[in-house]
Amino acid sequence: METFVAVVALAGLGGALITAVYALSFLTGVRGTLGVAPFLSGGVPREHALSRFHVRWYAVTMVFLAFDMEMIFMYPWALVVASMGTMAVVEMFLFLGLLLLGVLYAWREGAFRWA
């Protein structure tokens, strides 16, 4: 059996099981959908919850985006270290040193604190 056919078949099986759960719930459950207010521990909502949510760690997302790009080079590097010797290791850890400088700077600037 072709590998990606097997994977697609498994994903299909997962989807089928999930639809079966919803179908079974439709059959055995109490009919009719209950429209409710969002749960605010007994209170009444004064506005829509879907709003411009002021995320307090937005600086971390930017440092994360930049730092994450270094992962792209590390996966193939892991394959070739055995054959390319110390040159590859020195190069990669120089590259990592650069990035740790950035993380150190971000920490000193308080980017990892809730804004």
Binding site: M62, E70, G102, Y105, E109, A115
Partner: peptide, 21 residues
């Protein structure tokens, strides 16, 4: 690209954080 990433990190932290060290 490593240098570009470092520059981006420092640039984005400088631009976006309101209260520095």
């Amino acid at each position: 690209i490593g240098l570009a990433i470092l520059a981006t990190m420092i640039g984005s932290v400088v631009l976006s954080t309101d209260r520095g060290r």
